[in-house]
Design a protein around this nucleic acid. Structure first.
Length: 216
DNA sequence: TTCCGGGTAA
DNA sequence: TTACCAGGAA
């Protein structure tokens, strides 16, 4: 089987065994973008608490959030951890949103991906994974999100190697898959689910893993 | 390489 | 009590 056939087959295996993931959780593109920053190296359960705090204060709105002093924002997102750095990163993102889109995140959809992506990456605190998460899950751009789960899973299946670069790993998927936002969306979600529940950091639970047939 | 960090499962 | 988490910057 070719590399891209394998990657397509892995998707089918995960999807048929786990079902749809309904990603990204979040009611609006802005909520998704904020969630993408909050979940950097952080358990989603903790992010949910931070988002609940923001919602309770009617702050899941770009203008309202931008009017809030940084220290108060930090306090509200405290459950998500790294709350001081993340408050600064969200503020950086809000500055960007104001300048580039007059606080209207969705308006950025009119811009081509190849022009928008470098601008998003120019925001201090938004690295490749966070940028791609916002572009794919909040704005429906066809850019594939990879992460530590993806790297580990692919390495363990002999389809990658330890320490692979973000863009190289991303290219493996984008070269193998048709350009399809819904597919990119679901594939990354399935990888995260498999990464959390089977392809764990220490010892993988390969015996019961949906991807067991793909081990060498 | 180190720092940022609260929350929870094991 | 430790280990780890939908990372990124300095």
């Amino acid at each position: 089987m070719s590399q891209s056939d394998t990657i397509l087959a892995m998707y089918e295996a995960m999807h048929s065994s786990l079902g749809p993931s309904h990603w990204w959780p979040g009611e609006t593109p802005f909520e998704i973008a904020v969630g993408a920053i909050l979940t950097q190296n952080t358990n989603w359960q903790n992010v949910k608490k931070a988002i609940a705090n923001l919602k309770a204060h009617d702050l899941l709105d770009a203008r309202a959030m931008h009017d809030l002093p940084l220290t108060e924002l930090a306090e509200l997102i405290r459950p998500a951890g790294y709350y001081n750095v993340k408050a600064r990163r969200i503020a950086n993102f809000l500055n960007f949103l104001k300048e580039e889109a007059d606080y209207d995140l969705k308006s950025l959809k009119s811009e081509p991906l190849y022009e928008l992506r470098p601008k998003v990456l120019g925001v201090n605190g938004l690295g490749p994974e966070t940028a791609d998460s916002i572009l794919l899950y909040a704005l429906d751009f066809p850019t594939f999100v990879v992460d530590a789960y993806t790297a580990r899973l692919m390495d363990r299946h002999g389809l990658s190697y330890e320490g692979i670069d973000y863009y190289e790993l991303q290219a493996i998927f984008m070269d193998a898959l048709p350009e399809d936002v819904a597919l990119y969306n679901e594939y990354h979600a399935l990888i995260v689910r498999v990464g959390k529940d089977w392809c764990k950091k220490k010892a993988g639970l390969c015996d019961t893993c949906p991807l067991k047939p793909f081990l060498e």
